[in-house]
């Protein structure tokens, strides 16, 4: 491995830990009652977002889902503003009005929705705007295996496919739509193979392998920037925790969950690879420790911030109230 490769890979490892530590901080905030609502963390799915980060440009757009933290970080959304929003603070990205499912960052073209499948039509709108402006920016609409069964998925692909719009539909297939297993309800073995029905390119990648994921996302974005039309990129992965925090997970056994963590943890898998390439345990431990400490410090700082002023609860409904 060249020195350049080594730096790049260490940076990927750092990002994996940065993202996981971020969601660990969210879990801690929930335990401390700083977050009072629903929380969906992405632990186990870090490699997909890390794989996006190297290809995304500021002028690209990402429209994400209810499980959006890693995508936001990959798009360059400010960590502090994001965590403050998740923790319902006045200094949050959305002044405490959005919360964890609804972060909006206008400067970074990042948004999300808590409604499964609803991200794709919005991403389609960005793609159409880029097309009209003859820009080579791309719009990334993130979906899960659950979203891939919505009408919005189909309708979006019809329009994007027919007009060859610069849309990348990234399907994070963790094989569970809450409790419903993908193989139990999908008419096809993969989501990617449905791409041919829309005349677009379908790609399939192991979303627990950060290198493979980075390459696949880079290839998909190159194809789209070059005018090749939409791509459905399906990344398989495992959701380690419940659909939401507090999910009793009656739909899978403890053994199954332990098996997933043992076999498909993208951080552990990557560490093994880097060690095989000759990086030392102490180097890797240092990266891990630094990211954990940074997230802990950030959380401590944010927990001390005030909630929004209740007098402003009706502000921001319309533009004249800004």
């Amino acid at each position: 491995m060249t020195e350049q490769d080594q730096t790049l890979r260490l940076e990927r490892y750092r990002r994996l830990w940065r993202f996981r530590s971020f969601d660990d901080a969210c879990l801690e905030a929930l335990r401390r009652n700083v977050i009072h609502g629903e929380l969906h963390v992405g632990i186990g799915q870090e490699a997909i977002a890390v794989g996006m980060a190297e290809s995304l440009r500021r002028d690209d757009a990402v429209v994400s889902t209810h499980r959006n933290h890693f995508h936001a970080l990959a798009k360059g959304v400010d960590r502090r503003a994001l965590l403050a929003e998740i923790c319902e603070k006045a200094e949050g990205l959305c002044r405490g009005r959005g919360g964890h499912m609804h972060p909006f960052d206008v400067e970074n073209n990042f948004s999300a929705t808590g409604i499964v499948g609803a991200s794709l039509p919005v991403a389609l709108g960005y793609a159409y705007a880029f097309h009209l402006r003859q820009s080579d920016a791309i719009a990334v609409g993130i979906a899960g295996d659950g979203s891939s069964h919505t009408g919005a998925f189909h309708e979006t692909m019809v329009i994007a496919g027919a007009q060859k719009l610069p849309l990348l539909v990234l399907v994070e297939n963790n094989s569970l739509a809450i409790s419903i297993r993908f193989d139990q309800i999908s008419p096809t073995r993969t989501v990617a193979e449905r791409a041919s029905a829309y005349g677009v390119r379908g790609m399939h990648v192991d979303g627990t392998d950060v290198d493979a994921m980075t390459d696949a996302f880079a290839e998909a974005s190159r194809h789209i920037r070059a005018g090749g039309g939409p791509v459905i990129l399906e990344a398989t992965c495992a959701r380690f925790r419940g659909h939401f925090e507090g999910d009793p997970e009656g739909y899978r056994s403890r053994e199954e969950r332990q098996h997933l963590r043992a076999q498909f943890d993208p951080l552990r898998l990557y560490r093994d690879r880097l060690e095989a390439f000759g990086l030392t345990s102490s180097e890797l431990d240092a990266v891990e420790a630094a990211e954990k400490a940074a997230a802990r410090d950030l959380l401590a700082e944010i927990m001390a911030l005030p909630q929004p002023d209740p007098e402003g609860a009706l502000l921001y409904r319309f533009s004249e109230e800004v």
Partner: peptide, 12 residues
Amino acid sequence: AFAGMGVGLAQA
């Protein structure tokens, strides 16, 4: 799709 496309266009 096209109602949501409007939302994305407005955001863009």
